[in-house]
């Protein structure tokens, strides 16, 4: 079994029983942002704290990426094996809308306002044979 590593440090808590997206919140104006950053884009303060943004949210807008993007896109796919993927912004309980890949990839599966859940999924295999894990959202299951 290959090793699994996050595609970038600090985007989500993982491995964890219930992974959460991570962002930062400004100590001055309380605005949240993703990914976490040391300065606040809203008020310019340099005091921010890393916070969990949640693992469920509401779909704010969406589209389907139907063609394989050029570099810097870097997946294991070839033009022959490329599968269209969904992209959307999900409104998180932490108070920010996060841009994300969506597991759904056809318009009839997606609707603004639907409940979504976070999944940490393998994205590609790197040169060491490790699986790079990224975040994605799918239709929420259960309550």
């Amino acid at each position: 079994m290959s090793n699994q590593v996050p595609i970038h440090e600090g985007l989500f808590t993982w491995p964890a029983a219930k992974p959460q997206l991570l962002g930062s919140r400004c100590n001055q104006c309380a605005e949240a942002t993703f990914p976490a950053q040391p300065d606040c884009r809203s008020c310019g303060s340099r005091e921010t704290t890393i916070v969990e943004l949640g693992d469920r949210g509401i779909l704010w807008t969406w589209t389907i990426q139907t063609f394989m993007p050029k570099q810097p896109y870097r997946s294991d796919e070839t033009p022959e094996t490329f599968r269209p993927y969904g992209v959307g912004y999900v409104e998180m309980p932490g108070g920010v809308r996060v841009e994300t890949r969506l597991q759904a990839n056809s318009p009839d599966q997606l609707q603004i306002g639907m409940a979504m859940q976070l999944d940490i999924i393998p994205f590609r295999t790197d040169e060491n044979g490790d699986q790079k894990m990224t975040f994605s959202f799918s239709a929420a299951q259960g309550a």
Partner: peptide
Amino acid sequence: LDEWYGETGLMLTTQFFALKTQRYMY
């Protein structure tokens, strides 16, 4: 921006305009 943003296929102008248009239509 960090590399992961482009690597995972989120950095396309076509995508952004579609996302903004979709919400605007709604």
